[in-house]
């Protein structure tokens, strides 16, 4: 015969419940803060400085400046260097009439590999160039892609580091005329 069951109440194991109220409060505050500062369309900028015309004598240095100028003409892009400016390459537009940005980029990478310390590029667009192509031109002059030739420059501590940009300082040259 079975033993009569005990009448004592068995101690039940209570479920552990975490008190998440304060965590939820924190998360909700964070969600509202992030919603306020969220930008669903990512916007960035391309910096540009006003060209300054100076009457002073240029600094007497042994290193000749590259003085890179990218000039947009009717059916091509001219790349000029040196003082006085000499055209070193003419990149013809594509048959559709668009600027051959790839070819221009390749040439600028070659130029940068020869003058790794140079960061300045002057862009001289013609009047008919639209803003979209002007931005593309600035991108072409600035962007150093991962697939491009590795170019090393010295950082502030004198260490050799990979250059992140081709020509980081862009100036639009012909705004005064």
């Amino acid at each position: 015969m079975f033993k009569r069951p005990s009448r004592r109440i068995k101690s039940r194991r209570e479920d552990l419940k975490l008190d998440l109220t304060s965590v939820m409060d924190g998360i909700f505050t964070l969600v509202f803060f992030l919603l306020m500062y969220a930008s669903f369309i990512k916007m960035f900028e391309i910096s540009n400085d006003v060209p300054i015309i100076s009457n002073k004598e240029p600094p007497d240095t042994k290193i000749k400046p590259l003085a890179l100028t990218i000039r947009v003409v009717d059916d091509a892009v001219e790349v000029a260097t040196g003082l006085p400016s000499t055209v070193v390459s003419v990149i013809r537009n594509l048959p559709e009439g668009e600027i051959d940005f790839e070819k221009l980029h390749e040439f600028l990478v070659q130029l940068k590999s020869k003058y790794p310390h140079e960061n300045l590029a002057i862009i001289e667009p013609n009047g008919d160039l639209d803003y979209e192509n002007l931005v593309k031109l600035m991108d072409t002059a600035q962007e150093l892609r991962k697939t491009d030739l590795e170019i090393f420059v010295k950082d502030n501590k004198g260490n050799q580091v990979r250059a992140e940009k081709l020509f980081s300082e862009i100036i639009i040259g012909n705004i005064q005329s």
């Binding site: 540009n48 400085d49 931005v135 600035m138």
Partner: peptide, 14 residues
């Protein structure tokens, strides 16, 4: 430039 603004920032979309 004439008004004294020397730093242009062209706003672009990623």
């Amino acid at each position: 430039a004439e008004a004294g603004y020397k730093k242009y920032k062209f706003v672009v979309m990623s």
